[in-house]
Design a protein around this nucleic acid. Sequence first.
DNA 1: CCATTAAGAGTGT
DNA 2: ACACTCTTAATGG
Length: 234
Amino acid sequence: MANCITCENTNCLIKKNSKDPNILSFLNKKHTIKCKKSQQFIMEGTPAHGLFFAFKGKVKVLKTGVDDREQIVRFAKDGEIIGHRGGFGSSKYYSISAQALENTTLCYFAKEDLKNILLAIPRLTFEFMLFYADELSESETRVRKLTQMSVRERVIDSLLHMENKFGSSDGLLSITLSRKDYADYSGTTEEQVIRTLSALKKEKLLLAEGRRLGILNASALKAEISKHTFSLNS
DNA sequence: CCATTAAGAGTGT
DNA sequence: ACACTCTTAATGG
């Protein structure tokens, strides 16, 4: 099971503060949950009882719209928080759904336990605050991108985001998403994504091996969306 | 291990 | 957006 002392997720806020003597009594309140690929572990509108961290694996966080249109809000990898508002906040319900993209191990803190941790460890609480501020900023940037970028630009931006967040090995992105997932993240349809990816392939900017994608010319792709990214934020 | 089915990718209209 | 083909992955006996 996931152990905070031996855990290698140095980006995890809990891990970062695991040396604090006050935290030890809380760490054994943590639950470990195993999730199979494509399993949904948070359902939008469901009562929120706590907060998740990805221990190992990849997760997509999404909002469900009308007639099974989905909007992927963000992705999470090892050490990252899922269910932002489950821990505290005014709403009693999750405002998002979360689904494992591969077999994933989650850490879970119940609402009450988390509250006690935060009250006991100001430094951790402060880091949580910084995290939430960054998330809000990120979210605002994404709104701007979704409204101001063209479809092609949004697909490119998605690809670069995956490269940034999950990296590549052997020239292929370490995360494998369906075309539908790219569509749901880029705010388009699957067909538009497929066509855009085909175009990028023809232009030798992108490589596809089955459903795995590889970025061949990152600087050209970055250049294409630079007018949206060079001013403030990424 | 192979065969059947389901899911996903890609293209034309 | 829809209909269709082709490919790949999952299932189960």
